[in-house]
Amino acid sequence: MKSEINDSSVQLQQSIQKLNELVANLTASFQPITTIAKDIVKPFEGIAHKVPVESIVSSGSRIAEQIQKETQALQTADMYKNITGTLGTLIRTMDLHQYGLYSREIVELIENGKLERVKQGLYRLPIQAERDSEEKLISQLYPDGVLTLMSALYYYGYIDRLPMAWDIAVSRNTSKSRFNIDYPYVQPHYMEDAHLQYGVSTAVYSDCVLSIFDRDRLICECIKHESKMERETFNKAIISYINDSQKNITNLLDYAKRRNIHKKVRTRMEVWL
């Protein structure tokens, strides 16, 4: 019996020695791990003759698990620090992979509030989200889109009620999955590529520039989609356009021909003007 106790004591002392060696090796790079490991090892010192071998093995396993978790947490934090200084507002999954951040680390960052999921495969940093406007996010998500209808009417001051969604004209070949996002809410308007090439201007915001249909093209689109608009909003948009000194009826009629609504627009203009 005494022999078994001595053997257990020797095994414990050897385990403690190995753990201390591990702690010493990790000290330079992972100081938090050193503290944890020492705190765990300390209670066992001096009581080797009282501790069963099974407890020694179990404790050693717990120590290894905690060291592994702490190591992973520090590595994730270090990789996160790298991406905050090098990547832009929107971050793709492949970008995170390049920095060694995969599914487990990504989920951990999201749960800790250090990363926000915009949509499948696309993320952004919360600190960047606080700085950037909604318009800038739109410009990054849909650089090929053009503001139209309610969004464009609001920008030009033709209506004073902030739209609930972003009306964006895009190519009919655009994947619908691009609009599967929770925020901001986007209403896509699909059309032939050729119709995205004329009557396009720029909308200048505080931190970005977006493509937008000019005033004449915008009213042409409103008349084309009149049945989909609220009557009050449509009438207010037309009145605002008529009173706008920057309107160009010649351009409006030209756009109407391209959109196959020339007769309808001409008839309306004769009444309104």
Rank of each mutant, 00 (worst) to 15 (best):
M1N: 13
M1H: 12
K2F: 12
K2R: 12
K2H: 11
I5G: 01
V10P: 03
L12K: 01
S15W: 14
S15V: 07
I16W: 01
L19M: 11
A24V: 05
T27N: 04
F30L: 10
F30A: 12
I33N: 01
T34Q: 07
A37K: 03
P43W: 05
P43A: 01
E45V: 13
I47D: 01
A48N: 00
A48G: 05
V51L: 07
V51H: 01
P52N: 07
S55M: 06
S58Q: 06
S59L: 08
S59N: 05
G60R: 01
I63R: 00
I63V: 03
A64H: 09
E70I: 00
T71W: 02
T71A: 00
Q72M: 12
Q72Y: 09
A73I: 00
Q75F: 08
Q75L: 08
A77M: 00
A77T: 04
A77H: 01
D78P: 03
M79E: 13
M79W: 09
Y80M: 08
K81N: 13
N82Y: 05
L87C: 07
I91N: 01
R92Y: 06
D95K: 02
H97P: 02
E105H: 04
I106T: 04
I106S: 03
V107N: 14
V107P: 01
E108I: 03
I110H: 13
K114F: 04
K114T: 00
L115H: 02
L115Y: 02
V118M: 12
K119Y: 10
L122D: 08
P126G: 04
Q128I: 12
E130L: 15
R131L: 10
R131N: 10
S133A: 11
E134W: 13
E135S: 13
K136D: 10
L137A: 14
L137P: 15
S139W: 09
S139N: 13
Q140M: 15
P143A: 14
P143K: 15
V146R: 05
T148C: 14
L149W: 06
L149S: 03
L149G: 01
S151Q: 08
S151E: 07
S151G: 06
A152I: 06
L153T: 03
Y155R: 15
D160S: 14
D160M: 11
R161A: 05
L162V: 09
W166Y: 09
R172W: 06
T174E: 05
K176C: 00
F179D: 00
I181P: 06
D182M: 14
Y185C: 02
H189T: 02
Y198E: 05
T202M: 04
T202K: 10
V204M: 07
V204Y: 10
S206C: 05
C208V: 08
V209T: 14
S211I: 03
S211P: 03
I212D: 02
R215G: 11
R215L: 14
R215H: 12
C222H: 04
C222G: 02
I223P: 13
K224N: 11
K224H: 08
H225A: 03
H225V: 01
E230T: 12
E232Y: 08
N235E: 14
I238G: 12
Y241V: 15
S245D: 13
L252Y: 07
Y255L: 06
K257T: 15
R258N: 08
R259F: 15
N260C: 08
I261C: 15
R266W: 15
V271N: 13
W272C: 06
